[in-house]
Design a protein around this nucleic acid. Sequence first.
RNA 1: GCCCCCGUAGCUCAGGGGAUAGAGCAGCGGUUUCCUAAACCGCGAGUCGCAGGUUCGAAUCCUGCCGGGGGCGCCA
Length: 554
Amino acid sequence: MTPEQLSTVVRDALASAVDAGEVALADGLPDEVRIERPRARAHGDYATNVALQLAGRAGTNPRVLAETLASRLRGVDGIDAVDVAGPGFLNLSLAASAQGRLARAVVDAGPAYGLSGALSGQRLNLEFVSANPTGPVHIGHVRWAAVGDALGRLLEASGARVTREYYFNDAGGQIDRFAATVYAVARGEPVPAGGYTGAYINDIARQVVERVPDVLDKPPDEALEVFRDEGVELMFVEIRSSLAGFGVVFDVYFNERDLHARGEVDEAIGRLSGQGHTYESDGALWLRTTDFGDDKDRVLIKSDGTPTYISVDAAYYLDKRGRGFDRVVIMLGSDHHGYIGRYRALAAAFGDNPDETLEILIGQLVRLVRDGQPVRLGKRSGNLITLADLVDAVGVDAGRYALARYSVDSAIDLDLGLWARRTNDNPVFYVQYAHARTCNVTRNAADVGITLDATGFAPQLLDHPRESDLLGVLGEFPRVVTTAAELREVHRVARYLEDLAGTYHRWYDTCRVVPPGDEAVSDLNRTRLWLNEATRTVLANGLGLLGVSAPARM
RNA sequence: GCCCCCGUAGCUCAGGGGAUAGAGCAGCGGUUUCCUAAACCGCGAGUCGCAGGUUCGAAUCCUGCCGGGGGCGCCA
């Protein structure tokens, strides 16, 4: 029996008590009865505080309500024991057979175990990374590369339709400075003020000259354009390929230039003006974002006649909405948190309810540390550490896992020494090792003739406390996935996997699948192989959600 | 001055209002004629920053304060 099924059973018991007139609920039945795994084994396999929650509404005291439910639950098939404890908790213990059947259900579901329709019907646009094409992807972007990609997988697993999108700022002043820098370096001149530094600039300059050999003979204006177009293109190819090397591929790479070229920026400004949300002052056009909760108004068109980034963002927001997304999710670094107010104001100015159509996720700073000292210098980009530097130092799996295992609300220091280590103080190896171990058990079992054969599956034999523990953790997985998706908290999956890995290792230590020595193979051995395979399935599915590999051998 | 995030064991961090606050690491002590010891078991370790409030019940929600990090352009 899964926690979800148990939850339904308890709700049914409540419903029948209401029907029988034993309980009167003012606002009707709750939609869902929450079932949790109690920390202490003495409190049963599962517990619910439903009686504590509803006693007030039922006009009775919690223990009385709990007893009413308990008497109805005691007869239910698969439930072994029901106790009322403390102020009114209902502690439930399952029969081993009812709990054990989960092993087979998980194996039968395979890669689908953990998928749900919790978010079905939602169309989400996830924008993340969106690093400017003026340099390589650096550490400031990498957290969202790992977390955003994993979040996309989680949302899809929960039934949402997701588009991953990269916004490519290929217009504006920073690109002008980038082009000027590359042009200057190609001519052997010093980097102009406000320009970019780093070894990658020399690479780009050299490659542009290779692609357009006569570029330096062109008139400066023309040459600058070549450096702009070619340089940005080369930079973008590098960004895409470094992200792909990190396992992050976007469905849409959106060019800012297209917004300008298609007139969408003018259109967005026109719409805002048409609805009376703008005014002129100091020669600039302002958007009255303070009408929508922002702390000050924002400039849409500068006094020199060019649009600000807010105008472009307005156009981009409209573009996304026009493509049919219910919800526009944007993931940004903490240095952009001030952006939330104005972006929400934009959505509101367009007549949307930002609580429903816009979600801005803020990730706190990531620093890299080695031997207790902050790592500041990257190889390719002078003062910045790049994605490639991180992958060089710890590899893709450890990099992704390390970034995904902490709440994005916390600033983190990643210890490169730790995450590169192949020991169990490195959480990603602890989890991957558990997976490799399940595979090894399967291989050894096959050698003595134990295979996943339904005829030998006897769930009532999985009655060891460690088996109950393991089955309990396996049963939580679907809810961990949907909770993580709903809360946009990817780290919950990583923490769950660490819990599962530990529970598995403890089970493995005590409960053998392959019988020792010359002992005969029994149904217990055969049934345990199902449990082993169920664990492998969940470890693999969970690691897959994080974009981390699940090795069969280590 | 205003805004966002954080403050839990020596360290790094989990902990969606519930029972005796957890894990990993570090420290100390153990476990292998038997599926991978990259594992497992045991021990010690806490004023959940402080003060109020809401609640039957607060690490969790609210307010204020203290400490740390980050931000507040007609840059993007």
